[in-house]
């Protein structure tokens, strides 16, 4: 491509599309930075992200760090309380630690349970507050007894899923090589 041709194509490309076309970039020896205005369609379709992936990953983490799934899937009816208690103390500490690491949980209403608490009208129409007892058929209520503070996951910070891993494997089978 001649200099004039290149200049004109560059000019019109910028004028009409606001960016240089891919062939022009190639000729000029340029590469597009990440975060360009329009993402180029990738050659292969990105792997489909399933909505349940995050949930399975969380199960996997809780099993890996605290063996929560082993505990929940085990029939513990035959064991005495102190046997269950012995196992659960460790499990609880580890489970709590990984929950805190990946999810930031805060109360929905930071009040004192068992006391009268005012609630904003906006909160009532959403899923933030569940009204119990003598709930009026319509309108709104000014407040009531706080029975449960509720939990809100303010932040979820899960690590990236491994490429090519099967997220359905909550815990891999373990085989020891003698």
């Amino acid at each position: 491509m001649g200099r004039i041709g290149l200049a004109l194509r560059g000019f019109f490309s910028l004028l009409l599309h606001g960016e240089l076309s891919a062939p022009l970039l190639g000729v000029l020896g340029l590469t597009r930075r990440g975060g360009a205005s329009r993402p180029a369609p990738s050659p292969a379709a990105p792997p489909a992200v399933n909505v349940s992936d995050g949930a399975l990953q969380m199960l996997g983490i809780l099993q890996r760090d605290s063996r929560l799934i082993d505990f929940l899937m085990e029939d513990i009816s035959a064991y005495a309380d102190d046997q269950v208690g012995a196992a659960v103390r460790d499990l609880h500490a580890a489970c709590r630690q990984s929950l805190n690491r990946y999810v930031t949980l805060r109360p929905v209403i930071d009040g004192v349970e068992g006391t009268y608490t005012r609630i904003e009208a906006a909160a009532q129409t959403s899923s933030q507050v569940k009204l119990l007892g003598n709930v009026p058929a319509e309108g709104s209520v000014a407040g009531g007894m706080l029975r449960h503070k509720g939990w809100r996951a303010e932040k979820i910070d899960l690590p990236a899923l491994p490429r090519g891993g099967d997220v359905k494997i909550v815990a891999p089978a373990e085989i020891e090589i003698e």
């Binding site: 063996r67 082993d70 505990f71 899937m73 085990e74 513990i76 035959a78 064991y79 102190d82 046997q83 269950v84 012995a86 196992a87 659960v88 103390r89 460790d90 499990l91």
Partner: peptide, 18 residues
Amino acid sequence: HTVTILGRGTGLVGGTIR
């Protein structure tokens, strides 16, 4: 102080030794 060794395999409570 209690030292707990959890059971191996999927039997967590059953194999726990304290």
